[in-house]
Amino acid sequence: MPSKHEVGTSRRQEAVFAALADPMRSRVLQTLATRGGATATEVAMDLPVTRQAIVKHLGVLDRAGLVTWRKEGRDVRYEVHVDRLRDVARWLDRIASQWERRLARLKAIAEQTGDPS
């Protein structure tokens, strides 16, 4: 099982999964990736939804830590937060290695000779 720290981490990862579960939000993020950063107005030019909707999606992505932003005059420019994605990849790796350890223990027990089970 995860340690307390990892439980906290997984909660944060959930926000990422939830953010990416919405197809339009995924497209917003892809658009940012393709453009190498963009304002809400620029994203709205590429996608069939209003700028207002884009702003909402960017808000969710921001709370999930998937984008970073900075002010640029009157605009806000958003970029993909690549480290965050690597973070999620590492989280999945950790779950995989937990299974690896559990199955290794199962194997060790199963292969013990003279075990009555």
Binding site: F17, L20, A21, P23, R25, S26, Q30, A33, V80, L85
Partner: peptide
């Protein structure tokens, strides 16, 4: 949606 988005982003990363 999630898969598509994630794969594209993994490639980007």
């Amino acid at each position: 949606g999630w898969r598509g988005g994630f794969e594209a982003l993994a490639a980007y990363a």
